[in-house]
């Protein structure tokens, strides 16, 4: 499938991208998990990466968050070429990743989770400054509008949405420039998802470049500024919000032309394509 790119993008947006992937690829031996992915993450924008299972979303996250190195192309942070040796290095460069299920340690309290790996210490014994950490944690959560009655509670006692929000607030507090959200709403109900989407916008308004990984086009369209659909390890669509409609995004996500063909096949009318979506798509190509 060819890449659907619409040209005037560069002209309308002069802000230089925070994080830039230029033809990035990753091979595991003979398997090309990712090929020629070009992606621009801008400050104060939500970049949605959509794709079915196995489309290469996880590989893309691993590369950006420093879990894996890339084998082709170039990645640039603030214009500087970069390769992250470990998640720790990516973090100190300002890239925070909020994973769907390994964001927080369930049996640890809210404030201990918030500061895990970045504990504030004081005095000659390097004692944890618990008072200060609790205060900062409460302030940050309140600023994001998250209400947790007791910071000493284990994170396991909170709802899935609250946990995602705490992880997002943590990433913002520790100076992330780019935040990657790996399917934050996948395990959540409608209402909880809404809460998380709200915090995605808050993170955007706080000046971060947000990468929102999802397979839900409806949710992506609610918050996204820029959409990239991955298919079989390649970019199948790369468009700004004003170049898309939800219907188009949904169709593309659901398989686009392939789906049309499948539909035709199922109807026993192979070769005949007369759906309105298919027609507009044809015209654009």
């Amino acid at each position: 499938m060819t890449t659907t790119t619409i040209e005037p993008r560069q002209a309308t947006d002069p802000a230089p991208p925070l994080l830039q992937l230029d033809n990035v690829g990753k091979s595991y031996g003979n398997v090309h998990a990712l090929r020629g992915v070009t992606l621009n993450v801008r400050q104060g924008e939500v970049t949605c990466v959509l794709g079915d299972n196995g489309a290469g979303k996880s590989t893309l996250i691993s590369i950006i968050s420093g879990l894996h190195d890339y084998t082709e192309g170039a990645m640039r942070l603030d214009g500087q070429p970069c390769r992250f040796a470990s998640p720790r290095v990516a973090q100190s460069s300002g890239i925070a990743t909020v994973y769907q299920n390994l964001a927080l340690v369930p049996l640890m309290s809210v404030w201990r989770n918030f500061f895990l790996g970045n504990e504030i210490r004081r005095g000659p014994l390097r004692t944890l400054d618990i008072k200060r950490m609790k205060r900062i944690c409460a302030e940050e959560l309140r600023r994001m509008g998250i209400i947790v009655p007791d910071l000493d509670r284990p994170v396991a006692s909170l709802s899935g949405g609250q946990r995602q929000c705490i992880a997002i607030a943590r990433a913002i507090h520790f100076g992330a420039k780019v935040i990657i959200l790996d399917e934050p709403t996948a395990a959540l109900g409608v209402k909880q998802s809404g809460v998380v989407l709200k915090y995605i916008l808050r993170a955007r308004d706080a000046g971060l470049g947000v990468i929102f990984i999802t397979h839900n086009p409806q949710q992506a369209y609610l918050v996204g500024d820029h959409f990239v659909i991955l298919k079989l390890g390649q970019v199948a669509l790369d468009a700004r919000r004003d170049e898309l409609t939800l219907a188009r995004l949904t169709t593309e996500m659901a398989g686009g032309q392939e789906l049309e063909e499948l539909g035709a096949e199922l109807r026993g009318e192979t070769g005949q394509r007369d759906g309105p979506a298919a027609r507009t798509e044809k015209e654009e190509r």
Partner: peptide, 21 residues
């Protein structure tokens, strides 16, 4: 101490602990 926090974290969820460094 920080080490104590780490002990709880590696026991509670080693992957999450690794992810935050």
């Amino acid at each position: 101490t920080q080490v104590g926090n780490w002990i709880f974290a590696v026991g509670g969820d080693a992957e999450a602990a690794r992810a935050v460094g």
